[in-house]
Amino acid sequence: MKFIVLWNGLPTAESSVIERFMKTGGRVPEGVKLLGRWHAIGGLHGVAIVESDDTGAMAALALEWGDLLTMNISPALTDEELGGALGKYAAAGNK
């Protein structure tokens, strides 16, 4: 399953976030595949798309950075997956 990971950090955490990222390369835990990650310019926030079938690995991802960043992790669908879900919804008589 794919997930959207949004993160935000406080300006007071910037030095610690930079240090940890430079030390670890921002690696993700075993059981999580990083599909892409984008960082905001001039701010301590960004987004990543990851894939995992392991909720424990997803929790590890959040916990690894939880002391420095707030994270919002949500399941994600592609356009095709959403289209299929919408088609089933409409076929069931919903509008």
Rank of each mutant, 00 (worst) to 15 (best):
A13G: 11
A13M: 10
A57L: 03
V47C: 08
W65V: 00
V28C: 07
G25M: 00
H45N: 15
A92R: 12
G36N: 06
L61H: 10
Y89P: 03
G31L: 03
A76F: 10
Y89L: 05
K95D: 15
R37T: 09
K2V: 00
K95Y: 14
G84I: 04
K33M: 07
N94R: 06
G93C: 02
E51W: 10
K95V: 12
K95M: 11
A48P: 10
W7F: 15
T24F: 03
L34D: 00
I18R: 14
E51I: 03
S74P: 12
D67V: 02
G43L: 00
S74T: 08
G25D: 02
K2W: 06
S74A: 15
L82Q: 02
A57P: 10
L77R: 11
I73R: 07
M71N: 14
G25A: 03
L61C: 08
G43A: 06
G87C: 00
G31R: 03
M58S: 05
S74E: 11
I41V: 12
T78I: 00
F21H: 12
H45I: 07
E80Y: 09
E30S: 05
G66T: 15
G87Y: 01
E80P: 09
M22T: 10
A62Q: 11
A13E: 09
S16N: 08
P11R: 05
